[in-house]
Structure formats: C-alpha cells, structure tokens
C-alpha cells in the first residue's frame, strides 16, 4: 500500500466509511498477525490482538498526519500493543508458568538449553532481545531496515548490523544443530 493509498483510506475512515479500514486490513492484516504471533507465541492471542489493533486504528487513524511514513506509524502502534499485552500477561501469570513460558525465557542461558525442536521460532528466542525485535520487524512485519530504524529510534547502520548478526547466528545454529 502506498502512502497515497493509505491516506485515501484514512480519508474514508474519517468520513466513517468502513471500507477505508478494510483496505488497510487487506494490506496489513496478515503482517500484523504475523508480528503479533511472533511476539506472543499464541495463535488466539495473536488473533485477538490483531482484532483489537484494527479497532484501535478505527479510532486513531483519523488523527494520522500525512507524510509521516504510514508503515512505521502502524508498526509503532502494534509494537506498543504487543508490549502491553506481554506486560499484562506477565502480571497475570503465576510464577511457575512464567518460568516455563517460551515468550519469557529469552534471557535463559543458551548454554544450558538444548534445542530439541529446530523451529526457527525456537531459534529466534535464543537471539538477544534487540536482534529478535529487528528480525520480527523485518520478516514478520516486512519493514525495511530504514523503517525499522525509524520505529526503534536506532541508527540504520546499527539495525542492519544487528540483523546481519542475527541471521548469521541462525545460520550457524541451523547448520550445527546447536543453540545460537
């Protein structure tokens, strides 16, 4: 979806036309679902978040300002929602579940863990938080490095650099069948 198409959709939404939101949903629904799924690791939660996300867009899209880079703008909202969700979940989850939750074992020592299931999702968990986020934004949300740099407020070179590192680690892990 180009900026012009997005702005046209925003105009429709401003006038209360749901087709404007439908256009945004068609363009970004799958990406946002992938992004949420990669963050929360739970299909139903990812669906709920996707649904909530577009309801939120319905309310706040009329406030969107032209020329701000709509993909980055959309992703910032999704990122905040996912963060809020994880924060809420961690508060509501009993301690023993927290320990076993895959989404919350990111700081677990890689050396102590043997990855039995060689899924990329599992391997992603072994990257640093920064690297995970950049990989998710690039692959799941399909943002360019420049857009990721804008979303995270990090220099482009750092983003590209961390992404390369992350992919290198994944390559190595897949090749050796060992933890990242």
């Amino acid at each position: 979806m180009t900026d012009a198409e997005f702005e046209a959709a925003v105009e429709q939404i401003r006038s209360g036309d749901k087709q404007g939101l439908r256009a945004v949903y068609d363009a970004y629904g799958d990406r946002m679902y992938r992004f949420f799924l990669s963050r929360v690791h739970h299909h139903q939660d990812a669906q709920d978040l996707t649904s909530e996300y577009f309801l939120k867009l319905w309310e706040c899209l009329p406030g969107y300002r032209k020329g701000t880079g709509h993909r980055s703008w959309l992703t910032v909202i999704a990122r905040n929602m996912a963060t809020d969700h994880l924060r809420r979940a961690s508060r509501e989850m009993p301690d023993d579940e927290i320990e076993s939750s895959p989404a919350l074992t990111q700081s677990e020592s890689a050396e102590d863990t043997v990855i039995s299931e060689m899924s990329m999702t599992a391997l992603l968990e072994r990257l640093t938080l920064d690297e995970q986020e950049i990989v998710r934004l690039h692959i799941a949300a399909q943002l360019t490095f420049r857009e990721i740099a804008a979303v995270l407020g990090r220099p482009l070179g750092t983003v590209a650099w961390k992404y390369r590192n992350a992919i290198g680690k994944l390559q190595k892990a897949v090749k050796e069948g060992s933890p990242v």
Partner: peptide
C-alpha cells in the same frame, strides 16, 4: 533462513 522464518510465521494465519 528468512524464507523459513516467514513460512513458520505464516502458519495458521487466521
């Protein structure tokens, strides 16, 4: 690697 990541994320798209 990117393709494999994407395909896993694409699974169970509602």
């Amino acid at each position: 690697i990117e393709k494999r990541c994407f395909e896993e994320m694409q699974q169970n798209i509602p």
